[in-house]
Design a protein around this nucleic acid. Sequence first.
DNA 1: GTCTATACCGCGATAGAC
DNA 2: GTCTATCGCGGTATAGAC
Lengths: 187, 187
Amino acid sequence: METVERLIRSTQELLWERGYVGTSPKAIQRAADAGQGSMYHHFTGKAELAKAAIERSSQELKSAAVEQFSGSGTATEKISGYLERERDVLRGCRIGRLTADPDVMGDPELRAPVAETFDWLRRELAGIVAEGKRNGEYPDSLDPEQTAATIAAVLQGGYVLARAAGSVEPFELAIQGLVNLLPEATK
Amino acid sequence: METVERLIRSTQELLWERGYVGTSPKAIQRAADAGQGSMYHHFTGKAELAKAAIERSSQELKSAAVEQFSGSGTATEKISGYLERERDVLRGCRIGRLTADPDVMGDPELRAPVAETFDWLRRELAGIVAEGKRNGEYPDSLDPEQTAATIAAVLQGGYVLARAAGSVEPFELAIQGLVNLLPEATK
DNA sequence: GTCTATACCGCGATAGAC
DNA sequence: GTCTATCGCGGTATAGAC
């Protein structure tokens, strides 16, 4: 694999695990098996590399979601399929994690892909809910934007609970709890 | 205020804003208006001080929750009261934030109060849901542990979405979405 | 209890050789 | 493109004076 690619992927991993503040250029070089000079030849510094890594993670997250959303099935099937798909729960969300990092949120270049990812996700989910309403699967009273935000939040919050507990259990409880609250889930 | 107290409170603030990795002893001293020697006289180092700060934040979080839970009202009233109470949404959760910090999660002394806080919260919420079932407010099919995890997750995830967007809006959407999904919410 | 001095190390980046 | 040398700074802690 090329050096640039290794640098980006190593940065993705380190940002996921340790965040921006906790990730040093030296650690990235070690993980990517690249030298100091090499890294600074391809990127102006830590921030630019992080930007590339975050944008890559964002793309990957969206691709994985699209795969779940684009199949056939009812809205509830799509939503629960997305929620229940296999995940590395205890590692949490690569993008959501960054919202805790003041250096990321304070830099417009780094923040933008984070904001955009969740905007996109909520719009997608709202579209699925709206489609469910048109189908008659969901009652008219259900608000797509609210419900979409709730779904995305349960996922992000589920990671937090799981990491706190050191166990996937709370995550799975939270997901199942939400699925069971969705209209017609027990039909 | 005494030096120890100022040190603990300053550490709480900094952990909230910047996390464990992002918080230096020097920054704590500055915020607490205490000298180097003073800090190391009262605490063995950063870790011990962080432990005190985390335990304090945990107590405060629980006290605030107890206040919401102990009043009278239906289960849904208690839950939505808790969810909708005034919060510093864009700052996020002082305790939940720490789950992103590998140095916190890797140290049993620091991790314990984080784990315990969410265990406690989920038990409290599950108790309220169970009470709602006994009252006939909620159907027998509702699982208290699942629902409790969902409620806690929406809160934690709501913070993530809000911080990502730089706006409280997604938080409020997620909360309202959940409240509207709770059984009988529209009764 | 609080102060200043000191120490060691790693961070983040730059410079210039190869 | 990649390497090594070097730089200034701040993190984290210890030592000993007051």
